[in-house]
Write a protein that binds this DNA or RNA. Structure first.
Lengths: 125, 125
DNA sequence: ATCACTGTATTAGTTAGATAGTACACTAAT
DNA sequence: ATTAGTGTACTATCTAACTAATACAGTGAT
């Protein structure tokens, strides 16, 4: 059974994120072939066009390369992968800091908040 | 000139967030009156219905109370405000931790990542 | 040439969000 | 009672985003 999608955010974006994370975590290595548009569509239980759009987004950021008739492949350029990793990380941190600042938290409070959360995270499940 | 909205997320949701944060930061105190639906609509340059929807959302979470013919007011129940503050904080931390975990970061790396970011944040502007 | 696999393009349908306009209902001040 | 301000309700319309269905086009093995 396919992993479910959050209905309030576009499926193609969620697919992008999942694939990006797989690449970042190393589950998909450099030069490795992604599932075909149709296969991933079946596996994810979505329309092939939705997968295609996700692949298109990934191609636009150069994380993957497509070869017509052959498939879609993770880039072999390590600089691009490194850049994506860094951007992704900064983007998440940035968002977090912005949100916390808008709530009025100081930088110290953000750090302590995160620390406390990680120590006591059993309570938040 | 009104503060612009991010076109990729619903305006009413952004209004909710802005108002919530104002309350959390204390810019809007307990029992204080919010601008009328029509006034905020003009000020924000959106349709009154959009503001009404935002106020409705806030009322559903009991952060504000509406008095027909009089206006919309911040709740005077401190427990509700405290709960909102806490939930908002947890929700932001939760999201951050989840995203970072999906990228493969350990808890230590999350903390250090945040720390580094805050120390060098001049570079990220 | 054929086949089975790739990605691509086009068109259409559905939906959520935002807007607009109008009418209603309550409250407080006069 | 009147008036001017509140929030509420409803209907209609528009638009952009997303998804879906189907047909097209390149590749490589046979």
């Amino acid at each position: 059974m396919a992993q479910p999608f959050n209905p309030s955010v576009p499926i193609y974006q969620q697919l992008c994120e999942r694939i990006k994370n797989k690449i970042i975590r190393g589950e998909l290595g450099m030069g490795e072939r992604l599932p075909s548009v149709r296969d991933l569509a079946i596996e994810s239980e979505v329309n092939p066009n939705t997968v295609q759009r996700a692949y298109k987004e990934l191609e636009d950021t150069q994380i993957v390369e497509k070869k017509r008739g052959q498939g879609t492949f993770v880039t072999e350029n390590p600089a691009i992968l490194q850049k994506m990793r860094e951007e992704q990380k900064i983007s998440h941190i940035n968002r977090f800091v912005t949100e916390m600042r808008e709530m009025g938290y100081s930088e110290k409070e953000m750090l302590h908040g995160l620390q406390d959360y990680l120590e006591k995270k059993e309570d938040n499940k």
